[in-house]
């Protein structure tokens, strides 16, 4: 983190600059497993975002009292609690979402993104920025899942959010609904974002000779 400038907004940081899916490549299990429809992707992304906000907030609140040696155990206990609570709430609130996500919600515990944010951010920062970070990372994750889900649903089923796009005679690319399709669409998106980033970096380097950029990050 640079000391000369103000730290980046934790919310926007997760949403774009440090996007969990496309930049940090974290939480690949749900990314690949539940993105075969846009609806599932959005629901999973939002559920993860919800868990991230709660767990980051709780961890930040007690960060000064956590003995260093048992901090990971502490984080996991808190994350597991947040996930269980989410599971109950989803079951109670919405039947369709529960039908779609039922087996996946318990897996949020194993999403390394949640633990990573606890260790990297919430353990060092106050409650409000931590929750902002959780929301940003969570929504960034949801954005990533939605990107994948879009490719997979449009090609794999010819629909977007279950709305047919190509008429009744569309030949679905079954592959994209199957697990390999998850890997392929992830690769396509990573390629797109890497190209985009590289181009931006090249522009930045070209501009370096003229003006010093306001912020140089390690």
């Amino acid at each position: 983190m640079s000391t000369t400038t103000t730290p980046p907004n934790p919310f926007l940081n997760g949403l774009w600059r440090q996007n969990p899916t496309f930049v940090q490549i974290l939480g690949m299990c749900p990314t690949l497993a539940i993105t075969n429809s846009v609806r599932n992707a959005i629901a999973m992304g939002l559920a993860t975002a919800f868990v991230l906000v709660i767990s980051n907030g709780l961890i930040a609140a007690i960060r000064k009292h956590v003995p260093k040696q048992v901090r990971i155990a502490t984080y996991i206990a808190i994350i597991a609690t947040a996930v269980t609570v989410t599971d109950y709430l989803v079951k109670a609130i919405s039947i369709p979402v529960y039908k779609a996500l039922g087996p996946f919600i318990p897996l949020i515990v194993a999403n390394c993104l949640v633990l990573e944010r606890a260790e990297a951010f919430a353990a060092k920062k106050p409650v409000i920025p931590s929750m902002m970070d959780g929301a940003g990372m969570g929504l960034g994750f949801a954005f990533g899942l939605t990107c994948l889900g879009t490719v997979r649903e449009v090609l794999g089923a010819g629909t977007f959010l279950s709305i047919p796009l190509f008429g009744p005679n569309f030949e679905p690319w079954v592959l994209f609904l199957l697990p390999p399709g998850g890997f392929i669409s992830l690769a396509i998106w990573l390629l797109v974002f890497a190209t985009f980033r590289e181009r931006k970096q090249r522009q930045l380097q070209a501009g370096l000779t003229e003006i010093q950029p306001a912020e140089v990050r390690s």
């Binding site: 030949e171 690319w173 079954v174 592959l175 994209f176 199957l178 390999p180």
Partner: peptide
Amino acid sequence: AFLQAAFPVA
């Protein structure tokens, strides 16, 4: 292999 996985009927 891609075609077989994508269009198994065709």
